[in-house]
Write a protein that binds this DNA or RNA. Structure first.
Lengths: 244, 244
DNA sequence: AGTCGTGACCTTACAGCGTAAGCCTGCGGC
DNA sequence: GCCGCAGGCTTACGCTGTAAGGTCACGACT
């Protein structure tokens, strides 16, 4: 039976809403990386496997290897893709226009935006090994380091001061943003058992101060604290500029 | 042959230098966690598997499960163990003695010491999910938060100022220490190809500034920068204290 | 003294992982 | 009309975490 039921009827599938399998988007590297980013955003890094990512793209796992050398380099590509989102951020300047403080403020907020846009993926920016020991996350790609240094040099910073500012700037960003996204990623979790029941004194209250200040500890002032710490950092960088 | 060669001669093994198998250290939880820490220190996190850890302890993988619920909680235990090393650090004070600045200075350096002692394990302190969203790595255990807050409160800080200081302090530590250990862990790697050959202009020099400042970028001033940034942070915390 | 419970470790087994090697098939060019 | 090959798929291997159950020495109790 050459036209039997076991022959796939592509047209019927098209009618049923499925795209023709052979035309279902030709699967290139960017599409794979983009899918990996959304996958991590949705299910977290441990949920990402080559087979599942293939499944999400309607493809077998091994097909991905035609475009990506392996899982490790895929993760590197994810980091690169996330940071590349800053490239299309209109708020970030190519070079200082209204002073270096404004330049760095915009850059810092740009990094913060991508961090908040990908709370589950951003930790990868910190944890993936860097290509060179002097590249510091989250500004871990050559174009951004170049832009940063050029920006400060153009504003009269010395070589040493520019590099010092780069180090201070990255330390600041990494600490603040990692902590901010970690609190975001945490409460998306299984929620566990938040025992605010009346049996609080069931376990001995060994940490009275933490207990007492829990209200304050739970408050989220990330945005404000980021702003203030950034302001302070800029002052410190100004000093570095002055004394060089 | 009841006394044939296939009967294990325990005494012979003892003579040969091996400990009697049944006495070969009874394998408790602390020993497992300690072995996991050294394993990560030596081979890195990806090298740690239950089977290999068992092997390092002279035991099958499944035997570990009698003391540890699973790999995930083992990693949590590793984080706890690493941070607990601060508990025996004589330099860290239980409570302020010569002012809160000294108190925080000692605490900061104590955390830095354990980070530098375990460069490959320290990132876990940041990446493992925290138990509550208001616990901030690296000061992510209740006893340390309690000690921190109590210390500042005893020095006249308000409730809010103490919590604010906790947040600023942890952000500072995480950023600086994560970046410092990442540079440490990087150059232990396979070393790759450091092409400092004469064919540097083989690829177009697209990032001339980075290229030009590479000498400065490669310099390591971690200790000094940590000190300076800490000093600046303490000033900022002093302001938080004053305006509350 | 003999029996039996139990704790500590081992064995087996399974599903899922990353990925090396090779197969299949439909499309474009000669 | 045929062939080459790009772009997928299949199979297979060694590894992983871990559930389930086996084995065996030792200490306690009758």
């Amino acid at each position: 039976m050459p036209d039997g039921d076991d022959i796939v009827d592509a047209d019927a599938k098209v009618v049923a809403g499925e795209a023709p399998p052979s035309t279902r988007l030709p699967l290139d590297r960017d599409r794979i990386v983009a899918a990996a980013v959304s996958f991590i955003d949705e299910f977290g890094l441990p949920g990402l496997s080559m087979r599942r990512l293939g499944g999400a793209l309607g493809v077998e796992a091994m097909s991905l290897y035609r475009y990506v050398p392996g899982r490790e380099s895929l993760l590197d590509a994810v980091v690169e893709a996330v940071l590349d989102e800053m490239g299309v951020d209109e708020e970030i300047l190519e070079a200082p226009r209204d002073g270096w403080q404004d330049f760095l403020q915009r850059l810092a907020h740009g990094v913060r935006r991508v961090a908040l846009a990908h709370p589950r993926a951003f930790p990868l920016v910190a944890s993936r090994p860097v290509e060179a020991p002097w590249l510091r996350p989250p500004l871990r790609s050559l174009p951004w380091v170049e832009r940063f240094l050029d920006g400060l040099l153009a504003e009269g910073f010395s070589d040493k001061a520019s590099v010092g500012a780069y180090r201070a700037f990255t330390s600041f960003l990494l600490g603040h943003l990692l902590l901010e996204v970690s609190t975001l990623g945490a409460d998306v979790g299984p929620l566990d058992v938040i025992d605010d029941g009346e049996d609080r004194n069931a376990k001995p209250m060994v940490y009275p101060t933490v207990e007492r200040l829990r209200r304050y500890l739970g408050e989220d002032h990330s945005a404000l604290e980021f702003e203030e710490a950034l302001e302070e950092l800029l002052n410190r960088i100004a000093l570095m500029q002055a004394e060089s």
